[in-house]
Amino acid sequence: MTLILIAANKDFIVQVSDRRTTSVRGVESDEETKAIYLETPYMQALMGYTGLARIGIEPTNRILMDLLLKEVLRRADGNPSRVVHELGAALDNFFQNGPGRVYRVRDRGLTVAITAFVGREGGLRQAFLTNTKGGVFRPVFSNPKRDAPDDKLTIVQRLGQWQEFDQNQAEEVRTLLAPGRPARAVRDKMAEIIANRANTNQTVGAQLNTAVLQRGQQPAWGYVTGVNSPTYYSGDMVIMWPDGKMLATSDMQITNQDRPMVVPRVHRNAPCPCGNGKRYRECHRPKAQ
């Protein structure tokens, strides 16, 4: 299980997900990617998933990317609504006729969230695919009203360990989605909420991926950790260009053995945890977005 928080308004989408995977045996890994950036000529989206972390020896993120690249995007021709339906059909086939058939229905629980800017005007849309009821993936669309005023055109959503994100916290995040507020404020608040929950819930990890998607731009990835880490972990990416060609990156990481790539967050004027003597704001503090 995991915890993913998603917040969006007309200008940006923010997704924060922990990287921990667990099983009946306990914690399997603290470094599994659960965030994918998806782009077609008709949409820009952030995807996240909770539930089944691995299918056989393959992490679920790689299976989702494989289905997108080999089947879904070409069949859907990049159309946002069709992408959702085709991904659901591909997952159904995977579990009924492919490698996933070895799992009992009750062990196949998987939920995929897709939050996107679609069309020429970049309208905000959200869709879910889940098979937790009966084993068949069913698409559910949850879209804000197109004619809503800017301060009401918002999405705040939780996946996985949803009980760890209460209504008061949701309203606090929604306040930060007000027009003119920076995306980094939403990102930092949601990262703080998940990191705090990691202290009390063993199925929620303290290592996090953050993604900020500004309309019309590439996503800004971030990695949050509670300890000094020589490795920076990014999210995955699948891009389909107008000519039908595709590009994908998966499990991207950057390692520097000489000094930490990522450090715990502290006050901006405090000494940087990396130990080089500089202030945090002058060293490892994430850049404004």
Rank of each mutant, 00 (worst) to 15 (best):
G51K: 07
L159F: 14
V136C: 05
K133T: 15
E86L: 06
V136I: 14
R74F: 09
D107T: 00
L129D: 08
E58S: 04
G88V: 04
G119C: 11
D166P: 05
R125G: 05
T132S: 11
K133N: 12
V112A: 04
N93C: 08
G88Q: 06
P80G: 02
F137I: 02
N61W: 11
R120Q: 12
V136W: 09
I63K: 02
E164K: 13
P80V: 05
D151C: 01
A116G: 11
L46C: 03
R54H: 15
S81K: 09
G51I: 09
Q96N: 13
G48A: 15
P59E: 00
S142W: 03
Q96A: 11
N97W: 06
G56N: 06
G100W: 02
L73G: 01
N131M: 04
G78W: 10
G135H: 05
R138M: 10
E86H: 08
G56Q: 09
L91V: 01
G78V: 11
E86T: 01
A53H: 02
F95G: 01
G160N: 08
V112F: 07
R74K: 14
A113Q: 14
V118M: 06
R54K: 15
R108M: 10
R101S: 15
S81R: 10
R54Y: 15
G122A: 00
R62T: 03
F94E: 02
V102R: 12
L68P: 00
W162G: 12
P59H: 05
R75A: 07
R54F: 15
D147K: 05
N93L: 12
R82Q: 15
T154F: 04
V136R: 13
R138F: 06
F95P: 04
I155Y: 01
Y49C: 10
A53C: 07
D147M: 07
K145E: 13
V102P: 04
R106P: 00
L69Q: 15
L153W: 06
F95E: 01
K145L: 13
L87W: 05
E121W: 00
A89P: 03
N143S: 08
K70F: 06
G48C: 14
T130V: 06
A113F: 10
L87A: 02
F165H: 10
D147L: 08
V83W: 03
L110F: 07
R120K: 13
V72Q: 05
L110C: 03
K133W: 14
E164N: 13
V156K: 03
Q126W: 04
T132F: 11
W162V: 14
G122K: 04
L64F: 01
P99K: 13
L124I: 13
